[in-house]
Structure formats: C-alpha cells, structure tokens
C-alpha cells in the first residue's frame, strides 16, 4: 500500500472539523476539550513557524518531520482537511513542492483554528 497522492481537490473535499473526534479525544469534557484545543494551537502555531524556517533553510527532512507530527495532531483533533494538507507538505518531493504545499496548508490551518474557536465557545460539548 503506497500513500495516496494528496490532490488539492481531495483537500478541498475533506471535512474541516469533525467535532465528534475532538469530543471523543476529550472524553466528552468541555474543560478537557478547551485544554486540548489550547495545546493544539500552541503546538501547531510553533510547527508552522518552524516549518517556514526549515523551508527557508532548505531543510526538507525537518520540514517533513514537523509536517508529519502536526498532521497526527490534526487527525486526533478532528481536523481532516488540515491533516491532509499537512500530509501533502510531508510528501512534497522537493523544495518548490513543499513551499506550495505549505502555502496551501496555512489558510487551511486558519480555517481549522476558527472552527475550533467556535466549537469551544458554543454549548456543543457538555
């Protein structure tokens, strides 16, 4: 089984936020969900910063490792679109490809961020 190629169309077609996944990860607790979201923001903000730095240095190994890790966090947080866009960064074959993938991932992260903020502010979780 080879990893499937991640196309822009596949990213666009995926769900931004699946709240059931985050709710499950937080064991249905509002407090825990807030803590997880806060931690996710802090780690992912740093990951995007470090990915940009790695890209500027041309260090694709570090860039891929960071993207891989952030994709795992995104999946656990219920953010399939962000997860896919980060996997596209991880799979980029070269620096221009990685730059383009990262450029695509950034607005997806902003969109995911907004969805999470809305979620923790609503009564959607007990």
């Amino acid at each position: 089984m080879q990893p499937e190629t991640i196309t822009p169309a596949a990213i666009a077609a995926s769900v931004v936020f699946d709240e059931r996944i985050l709710t499950e990860a937080a064991s249905g607790s509002r407090t825990e969900a807030r803590e997880l979201v806060s931690m996710f923001f802090s780690l992912t903000d740093a990951a995007f910063r470090e990915m940009q730095e790695a890209l500027q240095r041309g260090d694709l190994d570090v860039l891929r490792r960071l993207a891989h890790r952030a994709a795992g966090s995104a999946a656990t947080c219920g953010l399939p679109r962000l997860m896919l866009s980060l996997r596209a960064v991880e799979q980029a074959p070269d620096q221009p490809g990685a730059a383009a993938a990262l450029q695509t991932a950034e607005p997806v992260y902003r969109e995911a961020r907004s969805a999470l903020v809305r979620f923790v502010r609503t009564e959607a979780i007990p």
Binding site: M1, Q2, P3, A25, H68, G72, A75, P80
Partner: peptide, 27 residues
C-alpha cells in the same frame, strides 16, 4: 501515521503485536 509499503514491511518484520494507523482509529 506511517503507512508506506516499505516502512510497514520493515515494522512487521520487527513483530509488533498490533499495528494501528492513527488517522484511521480513535483514542
């Protein structure tokens, strides 16, 4: 989340008891 053929084969040869893909499972 690693699921490439070569890595999975190498991992299986090292004999894990179970192999789960993070994005395909839940906590």
């Amino acid at each position: 989340n690693v699921c490439s053929d070569s890595v999975m084969r190498e991992a299986w040869e090292a004999r894990p008891t179970r192999y789960l893909i993070k994005r395909e499972t839940t906590p």
